[in-house]
């Protein structure tokens, strides 16, 4: 038996919007730790990892570990039917091939339940070791989204370069080139507007902008985004979900042949 009650149901709506374009179908895993997912995009270039910790739910009952295959497109359709202020409860019985989403309005005058069919999904789970990153950039998520969107209109790839001067995002396309430099800005009165760069080594890596723009769909989840870079590793783009966990995206770099 599984029963998870989330008063701030809008978090789940935002999570689905943040991952459904990257991954079509995925297994959600439920354990005492929390509600989680790890899935790769169909071309195995990017990976998304979601964690909603059990402590973040108002009620969390998960009698045994469960893995539930879901179509993210269909799940997003159902969650779109929940109001932004609704309380969302996820329910599943042991051995059932369906999952129920219950939406309660804040005043309890409207209660809806949506039952969705589960599916069998063969998915590969990857072990991601803890790593020391050469550079970690923390910046406003809206600024990062804007940069990826703007550069995406000019080129297909972004070169991210971190030096002690700041972080530079560059692209090149048929019409010309673009460079955007963000310098460290430790805004004390407005921490959500800060740009903080922790650099051990200067690092330069190239990534497909299509994926970065897909990751930026998580912007409504967090005011800040953390970008962790190392020359020999995929980039990690992390959006923390307040009090609950995170959505992390891993993206393999492009290299010059």
């Amino acid at each position: 038996m599984l029963e998870l009650r989330l008063v701030q149901g809008s978090i789940l709506k935002k999570v689905l919007e943040a991952i459904k374009d990257l991954v079509n179908d995925a297994n959600f895993d439920c354990s005492a730790t929390g509600f989680s997912l790890q899935a790769m995009d169909s071309s195995h270039v990017a990976l998304v990892a979601l964690l909603l910790r059990s402590e973040g739910f108002e009620h969390y009952r998960c009698d045994r570990n469960l893995s539930m295959g879901m179509s993210l497109t269909n799940m997003a359709k159902m969650l779109k039917c929940a109001g932004n202020d609704d309380i969302v409860t996820i329910k599943a019985d042991d051995g059932s091939d369906t999952i129920t989403f219950m939406f309660e309005s804040p005043t309890q005058d409207k209660i809806a339940d949506f039952e969705m069919k589960l599916m069998d999904i063969d998915s590969e789970h990857l072990g991601i070791p803890e790593a020391e990153y050469e550079a970690i950039v923390r910046m406003p998520s809206s600024e990062f989204a804007r940069i990826c969107k703007d550069l995406g209109t000019i080129g297909d790839t972004v070169v991210i370069s971190v030096t002690k001067e700041g972080v530079k995002f560059s692209t090149r396309g048929d019409i010309g080139t673009a460079n955007i430099v963000c310098r460290q800005n430790t805004s004390i009165d407005k921490p959500e507007e800060a740009t903080i760069i922790e650099m051990q080594e200067p690092v330069t890596l190239t990534f497909a902008l299509r994926y970065m723009n897909s990751f930026a769909k998580a912007t409504p989840l967090a005011t800040q985004v953390t970008i962790s870079l190392s020359s020999e590793l995929p980039v990690v783009v992390e959006y923390k979900i307040a009090e609950m966990g995170y959505v992390r995206y891993y993206l393999a770099p492009k290299i010059e042949e």
Binding site: L126, P234, A252, I255
Partner: peptide
């Protein structure tokens, strides 16, 4: 010419 690497080249199946 740039080549897109795969995520599975970095992390192992667990």
């Amino acid at each position: 010419r740039s080549v897109q690497l795969s995520i599975t080249g970095f992390y192992r199946s667990s």
